[in-house]
């Protein structure tokens, strides 16, 4: 369910860009961070086979995130306003690299990158949320995108509990980062459920 929600979020994002011929309201910085997240985590595509499903999803997430970046940078460039997308990503990249160096399952390059990508994914939404807060409102379709994206990691949580009891497996790095990631959406979810899903416009209180 988490993966499908993630998949759906990207389909909604592409649908929004296509139908409005615009990437207004979408943070380029957040999208660029996702490319970095997928490239650093899914490098194992080349040596660690899990399943056809796993491989297909990895390829899709890398390809679609690069494609979104292309759409924003070239095809719909005039519709992107960098002056409201001002979050400093350095504040995220540095700490995530440090977290990757401290918390990892083996002190080797690919494992550090994996951990880095997990932490970075947890906070990659911040430029987007920061932008949302600056503009104070969003198109409904954009909020559906964010809701699906936020729900994705939240839906992993029951699965982690299931695996803890069922398979006796726990991945503390993914769990802690996943909880942080989900937590960052709580404010957004509150407004989404109380306004957008009640048919009102997404507007933040002044």
């Amino acid at each position: 369910a988490g993966d499908i929600s993630h998949l759906a979020s990207i389909v909604i994002l592409l649908h929004k860009i296509y139908t409005s011929h615009s990437c207004r309201g979408i943070s380029f910085k957040t999208q660029a961070l996702y490319v970095l997240v997928f490239l650093t985590r899914y490098l194992d595509l080349f040596w660690h086979w899990v399943s056809l499903y796993n491989t297909a999803m990895k390829v899709f997430f890398i390809a679609s995130s690069v494609y979104v970046l292309y759409l924003m940078k070239y095809k719909y460039r005039p519709t992107h306003d960098p002056s409201i997308d001002t979050f400093k990503v350095e504040y995220l990249l540095g700490p995530c690299l440090i977290l990757g160096l401290i918390f990892n399952y083996e002190f080797k390059f690919t494992e550090i990158l994996w951990s880095f990508s997990i932490w970075l994914e947890a906070v990659a939404i911040l430029p987007q949320l920061f932008m949302l807060q600056r503009t104070g409102e969003a198109e409904a379709i954009t909020t559906h995108y964010l809701a699906a994206l936020g729900a994705y990691r939240a839906l992993y949580i029951p699965n982690w509990i299931w695996r803890y009891f069922g398979d006796n497996v726990v991945d503390p790095i993914a769990v802690v980062a996943g909880l942080v990631q989900t937590g960052l959406y709580l404010d957004f979810f509150y407004v989404y459920f109380t306004k957008v899903l009640q048919g009102q416009k997404f507007e933040l209180p002044a």
Partner: peptide, 10 residues
């Protein structure tokens, strides 16, 4: 496969 954890999630 001797990965310390599963890494089988996305």
């Amino acid at each position: 496969d001797d990965l310390p954890v599963f890494h089988d999630e996305l």
